[in-house]
Amino acid sequence: MSSRNVFAGLTVDGVSKTFRNAKKSVHVLRDVSLKVEAGSIACIVGKSGCGKSTLLRVIAGLETDYDGTVTLSGSVLRGPGRDRGVVFQEPRLLPWLSVEGNIAFALQGLTPFEKRRRVLRYLKKVGLTKSARSYPHQLSGGMAQRVAIARGLVNQPKVLLLDEPFGALDALTRIQMQQETLRLWEALRPTMVMVTHDIDEAIFLGDQVIVMSAGPKTIRKKLSVTLPRPRDRNSPEFAALRREILAEFFVDA
């Protein structure tokens, strides 16, 4: 927190969103508020259809028609911007660009030399230096998503937004990716907001876990996770948190 009393992190304040058509209107988000400290990780969990991805799209600026405000380092966000990096569910790499080209795609207004240096630095951080000249169809799912993460980080955004980034990966690769994400976060310390349906993933990574419900599409519970990292998925404390979150899902069942 700065001396001028501006919150350096991300805040979502009273955000609601409604899809309207001629016949009816559907609430996709109802009065969602949350606060993510700068440099911390927030994980949003919930069943499919609870609006968690919509919330992330609101923060990313991809949804513009909503009530409430989203602020980053004190300024109100309207529309997309390079102060936020986004990693989508699917890697969404441009198939006609090399790995290098895909990461460079996120950069604007740098000299070619500086651009290349930056791209290589982030490729190294995700451990894919050797694949710089490969094309997306030559990569495994995990590798492709690592490229997407490098692309999300290469602008050095204040916040990295991840929308179920490991949902399509197999269980082992997913755990490996979680560990790598943690390693990256420790090295670069970006603020991170990750949407997931994997409760273990949320507890393993998050400083706070935000549980959203599908009934009224809003936040049901916020838990802060204070266990030291790296967290042991088999520890009693981890298990207790898992039980507490799981319980939330079956209240309204």
Binding site: F88, R92, L97, F105, Q108, N155
Partner: peptide
């Protein structure tokens, strides 16, 4: 989906046309 990627990274119009 690629249009969204371009929006997220505030890709310039020219680059959007030539690269996407």
């Amino acid at each position: 989906r690629f249009v969204e990627v371009a929006r997220v990274f505030e890709t310039s119009r020219w680059r959007f046309v030539s690269r996407v």
